[in-house]
Design a binder for these strands. Structure first.
Lengths: 221, 221
DNA sequence: TGAAGCAGTTATAACTTCTAACGAAAGCGC
DNA sequence: GCGCTTTCGTTAGAAGTTATAACTGCTTCA
C-alpha cells in the first residue's frame, strides 16, 4: 500500500501525471485567473478526455485547494531561505516582492478575493502562521524602534494589545515593538503588493518599487 | 429617444427591472462571490426565464462591470461625504473601513483579485483617480509631517519621486509630504482591510480595528 | 497463470452562458 | 380609434462546464 515514498512504477506514473496536471493548471491560472481554470481544457491539452482527470483529483475545488497549498509552501520556502541568508527585514521584503511578481495569480491565490464559504484546511493555516514567524524572528534583534518619544506613545495602545494576544505569533517571546513591526511588515507590504499586482498603479506613472522600498526603510531602521 | 431622464413609463419599468436584477446580483455576490453569480438563478428568482435578462444586460460580464461601476460610485460618494464633513484623515479612514465592512465582496469587486485580461473602462478609472483626491486634500493642511529629521531623510527619495510624477494626483499642488501621506493612507489601510476582509486575521485572536487605528494615528499626526 | 485493481474511455445528467426565432403586448403616428 | 413598429418574454438549441456511471483494457501482484 505504499506506506511512505512513491515506490512502485505505478505510483511514480501517478505522481508524474498529477504534477503535469498541476503544471497545466498553473498555466491556465496565470493566463485567466483561478476562475478560468477548466479541467476539460487541461485534459484536452494533455491528450486525454475529460473525466480521466477525476482519477487524480476528486474535484475542481480539490485541485485548486492543492494549488493553494503549493502556493503557501512556495511562499514559506522563499521566506524561510531569505530569512536564513540575511537576517534583515529588507531582504525579506524584497524576497517577498520578487516571489509575488514572479506569478501574480499565485499571490492572489493566497491573498486575493476569498470565496465566502471557503474554510482553509488546518495544514494550510499552519503554514500561514509559520510564514509569520520569519518576520518575527527578523524584526526582533533591532530591539525598540522608537524614532521619537512621540511614536512610542502612539504605539503604546496597540503594543499592549499585541502583547496580551500573542497566540497569533505562537506565543513568540518577542518584545511588543517587534510584534508590531512584524505585523506591519505583513500588512503594509501586502497593501502595496496587492495594489501593484492588481494593476492599480498602472496609469499613475509612479514606481511601486519606490513606494515599497520606502515602506521597507521605515520598517527596518 | 429619451434624451436624458427616464420619462416614458416603459423606460421607468426598464430602469426598475435593471435595478432589481442588480439587487439580486448583489445578494448572490455577497453570498458566493462574483464567481458564483448566475444569470439563470437571478432570472429564476425573479420568476422569469433565463434569456430574458439579456434584454437588460448584454452579457454576464456586462452586468459585473456595471456592478463594479456602482461599487466605485458608492465608495466615491462615501469618501466624498466623509471628506466634506470632517477634514481629517482619521474620519476618512473610518468611513472607508465602515464601507468595506458593510459589504466585503463589494470591496473585493474593486480591490480584489483582477482578471488577467480585464481592462477597466475609462469612466471607472476616472472615478478611481477621483477617490484619491479626497485623502490628498485632507492630507495637505497639516503640512510637513517630520516627526524627526530621521524620518524626513528616509522619505526624501520617495517624495522627490512623487513630486516629479504627480500625474497620478491630477497634478495636485500638494507638498511632497502630503502626496506621500495620501498614498500611504491608501496602501496601508488597504493592506489591513484586505487581509481582514479575507479572514486572514481570524484565528489570530487580535483585533484588526486596533491595528487599523494605529495606522491612522501614524498617518494623521 | 489467474485474480484483482487501476487507468482511460464513452454516455449521460445537470448545470452554465448566450443566440435565434417566435408570439404577445405595449406605445406611437396618423 | 387603427395600424405599424418597437420591445418584452418566451421556447429551442448550440456550445461549454463539472461530475457520475458503466464499461474496456492494461498492469500488477500473488
Amino acid at each position: 500500500m505504499t506506506v511512505a515514498g512513491k515506490k512502485t512504477p505505478r505510483d511514480r506514473y501517478r505522481a508524474q501525471l498529477r504534477a503535469e496536471i498541476k503544471e497545466r493548471a498553473w498555466e491556465q491560472i496565470a493566463a485567466a485567473g483561478a476562475t478560468g481554470l477548466s479541467l476539460n481544457a487541461i485534459a484536452k491539452q494533455m491528450g486525454m478526455s475529460g473525466p480521466a482527470l477525476y482519477r487524480y483529483f476528486a474535484s475542481r475545488d480539490d485541485l485548486i485547494t492543492e494549488l493553494i497549498r503549493d502556493a503557501y509552501h512556495s511562499l514559506a520556502d522563499t521566506i524561510r531561505t531569505a530569512a536564513a541568508s540575511g537576517a534583515d527585514l529588507a531582504v525579506l521584503g524584497h524576497a517577498l516582492r520578487a516571489w509575488a511578481l514572479d506569478d501574480p495569480q499565485r499571490y492572489f491565490l493566497i491573498y486575493g478575493t476569498p470565496v465566502p464559504g471557503y474554510q482553509a484546511p488546518d495544514d494550510i493555516t499552519a503554514i500561514a502562521s509559520e510564514i509569520m514567524e520569519a518576520p518575527l524572528n527578523t524584526a526582533q534583534p533591532t530591539g525598540g524602534s522608537a524614532p521619537g518619544v512621540d511614536a512610542g506613545h502612539r504605539d503604546a495602545r496597540l503594543e499592549a494589545h499585541l502583547a496580551q494576544h500573542r497566540q497569533w505569533a505562537a506565543d513568540h517571546p518577542a518584545p511588543p515593538a517587534a510584534l508590531r513591526r512584524a505585523l506591519l511588515f505583513w500588512t503594509r507590504l501586502h497593501g502595496i503588493l496587492s495594489l501593484e499586482l492588481a494593476g492599480h498603479f498602472t496609469g499613475m506613472g509612479l514606481d511601486p518599487a519606490e513606494l515599497y522600498d520606502n515602506e521597507l526603510r521605515h520598517l527596518s531602521p
